[in-house]
Amino acid sequence: MTPALKESKFLQEGVLTPEEFVRAGDLLVFKCPTWSWAGGLPEKAVPYLPSDKQFLITKKLPCRSRYREEGAEPKKGEMVDDDWLAVTSAIKDGEEVIPDMVEDKKEKKPEVDDDDEDIPDMEEFDVEDNLVENDPAASNTVPNIQSTRTYDISITYDKYYLTPKIWLLGYAENGRLLTPQEIFMDISADHAGKTVTVEPHPHLGTPFAYIHPCKHASVMKKFVGRIMETGRTPEVEFYLLLFLKFIGIVIPTIAYDNTFEYGL
């Protein structure tokens, strides 16, 4: 077991202590109230984080289009940050061997039968007459959500890489959980399958897809460096807000809170 990092190395190395992770999480929740702290399963709690602040989560974010279907390959230097591209090309060069789910080419055809997924044993479940109500004051219009995928995004603290780790849980239009292959449709071509893996969430126990954190610190370090070139010293509380900017490049079509501007 590596001991938890005690001294701040944010400016030098782009990493976080557990205590800094909590401070950065507090600011994220304050700035973007759709994010919340959670405790998760008590038996999975880690001692170096408060019991009610084990991880962050934001739920049911709409994802209206498939990145892959859009077919818009990111152009270098345009919408994608140079540093991030540098990072991915490093990964491509085989600098890091990352556990990979798609690598084995056992890619099963996604079972997309959403509309036909009849509820077993429910065929004869006719609408009960006595439950039908006329309610002029109820608005059932739910524009888009019923026809859009949604995602839960969670952030945990990775004790090995000393960085946040991003987890995704995708839902199909009918509420069914997405398969990893389907989730990869929403992840930029540069990252799907290369840096994204499925594993049980460390505090919930149910499977989520995660973005491998091996390059997070170096990306953050470069970002810190760029801010310091402008004569400012970024405060560690802003870590997650800055970090989510980068994550936006990996999951470009998920509409998570991204309203904060650091003013680069």
């Binding site: 997924e117 509820i119 077993p120 429910m122 479940f125 609408v127 009960e128 439950l131 039908v132 109500e133 309610d135 109820a138 059932n140 019923q146 239009e173 009918n174 509420g175 069914r176 959980l177 398969t179 149910t206 499977p207």
Partner: peptide, 29 residues
């Protein structure tokens, strides 16, 4: 009063259903 039973994703007055066999079943996983 009104009961307002929730409608499913198709807008029908029916229960919701979730199949977690591909995530909960450890063998399949």
């Amino acid at each position: 009063s009104l009961a307002s039973w929730e409608k499913n994703h198709k807008g029908e007055l029916k229960p919701k259903f979730l199949n977690l066999s591909n995530t909960m079943d450890h063998k399949q996983l």
